[in-house]
């Protein structure tokens, strides 16, 4: 993937959409294009987190382990950003990410990602929006689960 298409991928990500073009190009120039075969693991839960990934082509699945059983949490496709939460939290990876198809990603160095977010207010806002979306989704999800749980309990 050449540098110009890397710019294109970055522009496709909502949080970078409003970024100044020069900054976007710099991010594209400084990021690393990696290729994974289908089934290859990008990182595992517990690994130290030193970067974030952007999918240029292909799909990944995110899974966590519960009592030795892998549970697939989410599938992500083209232009999805992942791995950034561990960077914000300065914590190890919580989930394992595996390529589901032949995969092309942009690897953004962790320090650089954090710097970009903190130096560019538009990006920071974009990140907040994205995180809010995630929280909202999680809350919805929790409400649904709670409803189901209540439905299972015998009524007094």
């Amino acid at each position: 993937m050449d540098y110009m298409s890397a710019c294109g991928v970055l522009r496709g990500i909502p949080i970078f959409a409003t970024l100044d073009p020069a900054k976007l190009k710099l991010l594209a120039f400084a990021s690393e294009a990696l290729t994974f075969a289908s089934g290859e693991v990008l990182f595992r839960g517990g690994d130290p987190a030193d970067c974030a990934y952007l999918i240029a082509e292909g799909e990944v699945e995110i899974c966590v382990e519960r009592e030795g059983e892998p549970i697939i949490v989410e599938r992500l496709g083209r232009h999805a950003l992942f791995g950034e939460l561990a960077l914000f939290r300065h914590a190890p990876r919580v989930a394992t990410v595996k390529a589901q198809t032949p995969l092309k990603v942009l690897r953004i160095d962790g320090d650089m990602f954090l710097r970009f977010v903190s130096e560019n207010p538009e990006t920071a806002l974009g990140v907040m929006r994205m995180l809010s979306d995630k929280i909202a989704r999680a809350t919805d999800h929790a409400e649904v689960l709670e409803d189901r749980l209540r439905a299972l309990q015998p009524k007094p």
Partner: peptide
């Protein structure tokens, strides 16, 4: 031209200069 375009707005002691 590319380098000037990418790096001209960065402060001169920015680590990207030496890295990239």
């Amino acid at each position: 031209e590319i380098m000037i375009d990418l790096f001209q707005d960065l402060p001169r002691d920015h680590e990207y200069f030496s890295r990239f």
